[in-house]
Amino acid sequence: MTMVKALNSALDNAMERDDSVILLGEDVGTDGGVFRVTDGLLNKYGKERVMDTPLAELGIIGFGIGMAMEGLKAIPEIQFQDFLYTGMDQIINQMAKLRYRTNGDYTVPMVLRTPYAGGVHGGPYHSQSGEAYFTHTQGLTVVTPSTPYDAKGLLLSSIELDDPVIFLEPKRSYFIKGEVPEDYYKIDLRKANVLKEGDDLTVITYGPSVPLVQNTVKKNNVNAEIIDLRTLNPFDINTILTSVKKTGRVLIVHEAPKMFGVGAELAATIAEKAIDYLSAPILRVTGLDIPVPFALEDYYVPNERRIMEAVNKLLNYQ
C-alpha cells in the first residue's frame, strides 16, 4: 500500500484500540485531509473523534495540548508544515516544555502530523523542510519515515509515547508503495535503520531523501552503508558511530538547507566522537540555502549528480 494508506491504517488501528485517540485539523473530517490520510475515519469514528477545526494552527495545536493534559491522545494534522508557524509558540513554549517545567506533573502525549519537504512543486509555502526548528527545541521527539512500512510502525510507536512527537511526513513519498501489515506493529523510535551495509563510506539520510540516496547508490554501484535516521532527535548515536568507525568516510544527505541544519549537528557529533577514525572530511549534500523556488524546485533539491560528486570526492580523498 502507499504511505498515505499506511498512515491511515495506523490511525485506524490506534483509534480502534483506544478511544482516547482523537484526530483534529483543517479538512480532516468530511474531506479526509488534503492528502487523504484521514479518509474514511470520520464515518467510522464520528465527529467527536475526527474533528474538523477552524482555520487556526495555533488553536489546533493548543487544543491538542489541552486534550493531552487531560489524558486524551490528540493527533492534530497541520495541512502543510509551512503553515504550522502560527502555532510555533505553542510547540516551543507549551508542548515541548510542559513535562520539564512541571517536572512531569503534566506530560503531552501528542503526535503532531504534518507533510513536509518538496515534491509537489508547491513553491515557498508548500515545500519547506523545517525540521531543524523542531530538532533544536528541547523536549520534542522528531520522527520522519521514509517508507510505507516505517510510516505505520513509527506512527504507532509515536502514539504510544508519553511525550510530544513532531511527525514529519515526506509528501514526495506519500504515494510510493510497499508491503504494510494490516495489523498493529511498532518500530523502535530510538533506533536508526541500516538500509544497506557497505564498507567504503557511510551515507546518513532520512525522510524524503532516502529513495534518492538508495537509487543513486544502487545505480552507481557504490559500496556504501546507508543509514536512515528515522528519528532526528534524539538520534541514534550508536548506529552512526559503529558505521563511521568502520568506513571512515561520511556523507550526509537531506533536503533541508545546509546552514545550521540537522547535518551540521550530525557532523559535529561525529567529529567530536570519532574524528580519529575519519579518513576524509564530512560532506553534506542538501537543499540550497534559499527558500524553495516554485519553477526551479528540481535544481534546489539534492540530486544524483550532486550526491555522486560528493561520493567521489570522499572516496578519492587522500
Binding site: 488553536g59 489541552g66 486534550m67 493534559m69 487531560e70 486524551l72 513554549n93 507549551q94
Partner: peptide, 25 residues
Amino acid sequence: IGAVITPVAGHLTAATGIAYAYRYR
C-alpha cells in the same frame, strides 16, 4: 490546576482542549 505559563495567554488554547476533554469524557 493547569501549569501556569509565562507567555501571555499561552494557556488559553490548551484550556479549550481541556474543556473538550471534559465533555468527551
